[in-house]
């Protein structure tokens, strides 16, 4: 049976909905509660930034929303599919199809060339190698990396590597794009180029982009912004409130 995420193009369904999520690490005296009954909603067609001081639970929230981390209580829905109680293998399969990842350190495999790196999500989704590589080369071209398809990641600048990582995250057309500090390792100009690409990706129908960031330069790209503090939500901003927040913090 297909999950709602695969069937429903209903744009009113939240991309991600966390309700009363609790997640703690460690036991006994060493137990640290990272999410304290957190509620979080990301809508389709939006670029959603999650900000807050270090250790406030941003990355934990992102990991739970992406289905890469188990939680203790509360509910997690991604495009209407409830992840609670889903067997791990099904969560993995769900992630494979519906989620794209962009990591702070790019996490490109250094021994593979760019086309091979970008092909990975397609190959994981059983696309034939030749087709996957053709598609990957075309996307790299679109992202301004034409002619560099057979280069290794280490032969590129940081900004180019992040563009390859974005190509890898988008290649299988996932509905949810998760990015962890995508501009922290980049200079100002390159950071803006990357945010432009991500903002454009968020506008695709039925897609949502959630970005965890410390970088105030990225705030102006947000459609919605969640400010976290001490494992909870300090505020959610959009519209005029968001513009005020940006002007105060930028």
């Amino acid at each position: 049976m297909n999950s709602p995420a695969e069937n429903s193009p209903d744009s009113s369904v939240p991309a991600v909905a966390l309700r009363g999520v609790v997640k703690a690490f460690g036991t006994g005296d060493a137990r640290t509660v990272a999410l304290k009954g957190t509620d979080f909603t990301a809508s389709q067609g939006e670029l959603h930034l999650v900000v807050g001081p270090s250790g406030c639970g941003k990355t934990t929230l992102l990991s739970v929303a992406a289905g890469t981390l188990d939680w203790e209580s509360g509910t997690v829905d991604v495009f209407g599919t409830r992840l609670n109680g889903m067997p791990r293998s099904r969560v993995t399969a769900f992630r494979r199809k519906n989620v794209g990842f962009i990591f702070q350190q790019f996490n490109l495999i250094p021994t593979l060339d760019l086309v091979e790196n970008v092909s990975v999500p397609l190959l994981l989704n059983d696309v034939r190698r030749r087709e996957a590589e053709e598609k990957s080369a075309a996307l790299l071209q679109q992202l301004g990396l034409g002619g560099k398809e057979r280069k290794r990641p280490t032969q590129l600048s940081g900004g180019q590597q992040q563009r390859v990582a974005i190509a890898r995250a988008l290649i299988h057309e996932p509905r949810l794009l998760i990015a962890d500090e995508p501009t922290s390792a980049l200079d100002r100009e390159t950071g803006h180029q990357i945010m432009d690409i991500l903002a454009q990706a968020a506008r695709a129908p039925g897609r949502s982009v959630i970005i965890v960031t410390h970088d105030p330069r990225t705030y102006r790209y947000a459609d919605r912004l969640t400010d976290m503090e001490d494992g909870g939500i300090a505020g959610v901003y959009h519209g005029q409130a968001l513009r005020d927040f940006v002007s105060i913090h930028h």
Binding site: A66, T68, S89, T92, A93, R95, R96, K97, V99, F101, F103, N107, I109, V120, P121, L124, N125
Partner: peptide, 11 residues
């Protein structure tokens, strides 16, 4: 990298 593959859905 193996962790990244796992996150991307490699079983």
């Amino acid at each position: 990298h193996l962790g990244a593959l796992k996150a991307m859905g490699a079983s």
